[in-house]
Simulated scan of single mutants.
Amino acid sequence: MSVKQVICINWGTKYGPLYIDRLYGMVARNITPPFSFTCFCDDPTGIRPEVDCQPLPEIDYEIPKAKTGIWPKSRLWGPKLGTLTGPVLFLDLDVIVTGSLDPFFEHGAPDDVILTRNRVVAFEKLGQTSVFRFPAGGLLPLQTLFKTDPKGIADEYRYEQRFVTRNAPGGVKFFPDGWVAHFRRNCRRPFPLNYLLAPKLPKDTRIVIFAGHLNPQDAIDGRWSDAVPPRSPLAHLRAIGQRDRGGSLWRYLRHYIRPTPWVGDHWRP
Rank of each mutant, 00 (worst) to 15 (best):
E156L: 11
L23H: 06
K14G: 00
L140C: 02
P87G: 01
I153G: 06
W250F: 02
D218P: 14
K14L: 10
A154G: 15
R238Q: 09
P57K: 09
D265L: 01
A168N: 08
E106G: 02
P229A: 07
Q128Y: 00
I47E: 10
K203D: 15
L196Q: 02
N186P: 00
G137T: 12
L253V: 09
V180M: 00
L196A: 08
V172E: 09
P17F: 02
T32Q: 06
P216I: 09
S36I: 01
I257Y: 00
I63Q: 07
L93P: 13
D43G: 04
D218R: 06
Q217I: 14
G127A: 07
L237M: 11
H213A: 14
L81F: 02
E62C: 06
R22K: 15
F35G: 05
R188K: 06
R75P: 13
T205E: 03
K173C: 02
W224P: 03
A181L: 04
R185N: 11
G264P: 13
T148S: 13
L249M: 11
F163T: 12
V27N: 03
K80R: 14
K14A: 10
P49F: 05
S74H: 07
L142T: 13
N194H: 09
L197T: 05
P57S: 09
I20F: 00
K203G: 03
Q54L: 11
R243M: 02
Y157P: 14
D226F: 02
T85D: 12
P202Y: 06
P34R: 11
F174L: 06
V95G: 03
R75Y: 10
L91A: 01
G241W: 02
P216E: 10
A122C: 03
T205I: 06
V131P: 12
